[in-house]
Write a protein that binds this DNA or RNA. Sequence first.
RNA 1: GCGCCUGUAGCUCAGCUGGAUAGAGCGUCGGACUUCGAAUCCGCAGGUCGCCCGUUCGAAUCGGGCCAGGCGCGCCA
Length: 641
Amino acid sequence: MIAFKSRLKDAIAERLRAVYPDLGELDMAPTPDPKMGDLALTFPFTLAKTLRKAPRAIALEAAPLLASVEGVVKAEVAGGGFLNLWLDRTAVLTEAVRLAGRTDLGPDEGKIVIEHTNINPNKAAHIGHLRNACLGDTLARCLRYKGERVEVQNYIDDTGVQVVDVVFGLMELEGLTVEDLERLPGKFDYYCWDLYARASAYLAAHPEAQARKSAIMKNIEHARDPEYGLSRYVSRRIVRAHLATMARLGISYDVLPCESTILHLKFWEKAFDLLKERQAIYLAADGENKGCWVMRLEEDEEREKVIVRSDGTVTYVGKDIAYQLWKFGLLGLDFHYEPFAEDKGRTLWISTAEPSAASPGFGRATKVYNVIDTRQSYLQKVVVQGLRSLKYDTQAAKSVHFSYEMVALSPKSLGELGYAASAEEKERAYLEVSGRKGLGVKADDLLDRLEAKALAEIEKRNPDLPGDEKRKIARDIATGALRYFMLRYARNSVIVFDFEEALSFEGETGPYLQYTAVRLASIFRKLKERHGLAEADIVPPADGGFRFPAALAEAEQADAWDVLLTAASLDEEVLRSVAGLEFAHLAKHAFLLCQKFNGYYHKYPVLAEENTEIRTFRLLVLRTVKEQLHGALGLMGISAV
RNA sequence: GCGCCUGUAGCUCAGCUGGAUAGAGCGUCGGACUUCGAAUCCGCAGGUCGCCCGUUCGAAUCGGGCCAGGCGCGCCA
């Protein structure tokens, strides 16, 4: 469809330029109503001024020029000067049917690195993390679909203060050792969720305990046990819990770069040398940042951002600049790796400081996406500016902050979580999720609830299915519901989480899409049973050309055309979604396709149709929709059940 | 104070680089299952697109101003 449209546009522009040399960029858009044709041209309006003619007169004059363009069957003037085109349905659909379930898109980059998830390894994943992972994973799927080489990194901050807080809690509040933790019942990430909240509260209430926490932090830094062993145990075990949670959603990674490795391998020191050498940062001689290495901010000449503190330690941004340099292969240093997990024959690697035989070769990207919520926009800007200050303008331009708004909690959901909100908090329209406060909806809890609800529905509908199958379907529906929920909102809109909304399986939801896919599958199953015809047999005539049956009613032809045109626009929607990092487009497109298909299906029975020519035609429509819908679902990580 | 984002139906949200009569879902009300799966489909009702100016043949969309809300702006991560 993309190829067809661009050929058409070129042909039309060429035709018009011969008569109107002043024609600018040709605007070609769908008409508001299929009755008005397929595509609308608006150039008569823009030419009206220079030609000093009424738009309608120009349109009337131009119409005959276009009626003979290949791919166009009719050109008609509408409204004040729109020129509407009717496309050659047979030509368009021949291509659409041939490409169903495939794509002719190609890559634009050498290699793309996507960083997403990045959950602090000290507590269970919550709904905010799910939004990040779903967006990042969908981006990865879309880029791979269009043929890009993609590497997904999940950065593990295993030496940060959040892990320290939990170690503090284990040692000071619980008095537990690694051996004790090994015997702890229940979900470890849930245990840490509560402990982290308790440790945070304790530290806030007992300022004198800060000294003890600092001592713990120092011991972790210098790899001294028991602190170091505990931190290592906690972070590794929690990472495995996060991976398990994400695996429930079909989300996986290629490599886990760890903060601890970055420290051990002295990535920062190398970056520091580079920054100094190229004078991207300087030592502040006086002022409030005296004794710090700072970076001047481009957009605000007055301000400077501290990169190295006066005590010589590096800030978060500094480390991030080093990591970003590594992603582009600009640091001149590399990690070592060892296998961390196996998933469906694929190895997930984790960074390590010790040299090892394996060198899978990560990084060296030509483009980098960092999936991080919008609150970090400022810091992400600073990181990119760091690259620019180092004269890596190309890489700076290809460093993309995929930002999105947070997932917050509705007042109603606070009640369901048993959270006692303060008077001030009750005034607010929503409340931020806070790991520190232990306030949030845990990802696994939500998935469990979705699965339970789906299972109950399945019990009602298909009580005879084997238990295993019921559970598998319930899992698929739960992830479908959740992943669609995370994609359906534009990234700039705050999702105010509400259980009722998230647990819905009706209307614009993942299960609606899955249900549509199931219907399609079941028609083909019945086709096999009743007529002995396999889906693969439903192909256009041997010459590859698409034809409407002669006996087909005009209304049905229009309806089928509408459905197929929508199905054929998947690639356009993918490109649009990737370009704008707006996967709500993809979600809405899949939903629209299902709506249109369901309408078609309702109106035109397939298996009961006696005219074989018409039945075969309808089956071809169905097969095309099915292929494209499966494609769309796959990109969103939603199983077709 | 400065920067970014948001304001569209009762609720939750779409509306692509300006385009024709502003659309979905939920909810309300009313219909459609002996049929290819009713997690569905069809219909009714519901809108001064926050407000004001401007640009334009044409503005929910672009520009300016105001109002309201959110988030950032650390030698925290």
